[in-house]
Nucleic acid binder design. Structure first.
Lengths: 193, 193
DNA sequence: TATTATACTGTATTTTTATACAGTAGTCAA
DNA sequence: TTGACTACTGTATAAAAATACAGTATAATA
């Protein structure tokens, strides 16, 4: 993660505070007025920098749609790298990033797996698959799709113009479906113990 | 606090989910499209009702500036139950709760698994184990512990006053450790795809 | 039975907001 | 000393989004 200039840090801080105080994102105009810029482009440029450096994301042309990537409310599960034997282990130490950060959770839902049609891909009955919508899907990816009014999880394979769902268990058959019945790409598997 | 009609409740619920999924408020247009209203005024009227009844506030003429007065704390990944085959599936439908709600994330960290010592428990190299600190541990639970300055994941077994870590792979040996080297209980396994 | 609230359609207009593009000026590093 | 990055000015335009106003139909309430 790249460092911020002091001006960029001020602007990020303003956005952070604004969201906390108001419950919604500031508009670029709000930022412009607060900092006294005479041009809206000053804000545009600063936001671009913050986005490029990975501190912020926004939706193009959408009003008040800024999203902080590292909100101080700190969602997510920290992944520990090295663990000091000294103890006690502090989550704050040696973090190697976060699972399920706000960014990762965007456009994501989960389905509970029934049956063993994906057991050879190590997805078992009772597991949850984590599905991300609106992402590119390639042959060999695991996808969630609707088949006969039910959600199902299978390998994705496109052959010419046809789309097939292929189970990871030889006792089940492949089926052909229409592409718009694909719900999304399976980006993770979670098993609760 | 006044009661909501079912339609109003649906709209409030949509706003709630939208903010959680996207990090910013929906526009009235977003709401209109989701519910299939042909007139923007349908949204205006519903929002007015929700505001009058005290469930919502908004700033006049500001885009995406809805604020929930009673935000339900359940952050996380919504688990979908039934899925309607007819329309594009929206995360907002039929949630059966959340994975990784704020409550579930308390005192939780993750470790990346190296090696295949737990493969018979379906925990593989590269998986993440989700570890909860300060919870009761019983025989047969999977735990994370520090062994020789490294984090490791094994079955837990207490025999009389001794604590053993038992791998789920017969080619590895059990080891005895001191109880205070246990980091926590493994409550989940996540595999990123 | 008149009144009020819900739940919308439909069109038009205004306001807000974001973006595009053309510049200026300073700093810092190669 | 050229080029890249930061930090803006200034004007213009496009787009997104909210609002205004005139209706319709139905069910519940007094």
């Amino acid at each position: 993660m790249k460092g911020l200039t002091s001006r960029q840090a001020e602007i990020l801080e303003f956005i952070n505070r604004f969201i906390k105080n108001n419950g919604y994102s500031p508009s670029m105009e709000d930022i412009r007025i607060f900092f006294g810029f005479r041009s809206p482009n000053a804000v545009t440029c600063h936001l671009r920098s913050l986005i490029n450096k990975g501190y912020l994301s926004k939706e193009i042309s959408k009003a008040r749609a800024l999203r902080l990537k590292f909100s101080s409310s700190g969602y997510g599960i920290p992944v520990l790298g090295k663990i000091a034997a000294g103890r006690p282990v502090l989550i704050e130490d040696f973090s190697e990033g976060f699972l399920f950060s706000q960014e990762e959770m965007k456009g994501v839902f989960a389905l509970k797996v029934k049956g063993d049609s994906m057991k050879d891909a190590h997805i078992y009955d009772g597991d949850y698959v984590i599905v991300k919508k609106n992402v590119d899907i390639n042959n060999g990816d695991i996808v969630a799709a609707i088949v006969e009014e039910e959600a199902t999880v299978k390998y994705f394979r496109r052959i010419k113009n046809k789309v097939f769902l292929i189970p990871a268990n030889p006792s089940y058959k492949s089926i052909e479906i229409k592409e718009n019945f694909i719900l999304g790409k399976v980006t993770g598997v979670l098993r609760k113990l």
